[in-house]
């Protein structure tokens, strides 16, 4: 579970920043980048907050 959450977090961060470079190089349009950033946001905060919760439960 911990590994899955870590992968999801990394993917979330990747979806946040990588599409902007694709916009820069003309590979995707700006609105696609904006939608991918929403996906990145959900993935990152969903997984990072869950991971923090599990960590707290494990420690307690």
């Amino acid at each position: 579970m911990k590994t899955l959450l870590s992968i999801a977090s990394i993917l979330g961060l990747a979806f946040t920043v990588v599409p902007s470079f694709f916009v820069f190089y003309g590979i995707i349009k700006w609105n696609v980048h904006a939608k991918l950033m929403i996906l990145g946001f959900v993935l990152y905060f969903g997984s990072a907050l869950l991971a923090a919760k599990f960590k707290k439960e494990t420690n307690s």
């Binding site: 979330g12 961060l13 946040t16 920043v17 599409p19 902007s20 470079f21 916009v23 820069f24 700006w30 980048h33 950033m37 946001f41 990152y44 905060f45 990072a48 907050l49 923090a52």
Partner: peptide, 16 residues
Amino acid sequence: IASPWMFLLFIACGVS
């Protein structure tokens, strides 16, 4: 938790 995402958000905004 938020800081790595916030930093990348600034980069994404600038680059795009």
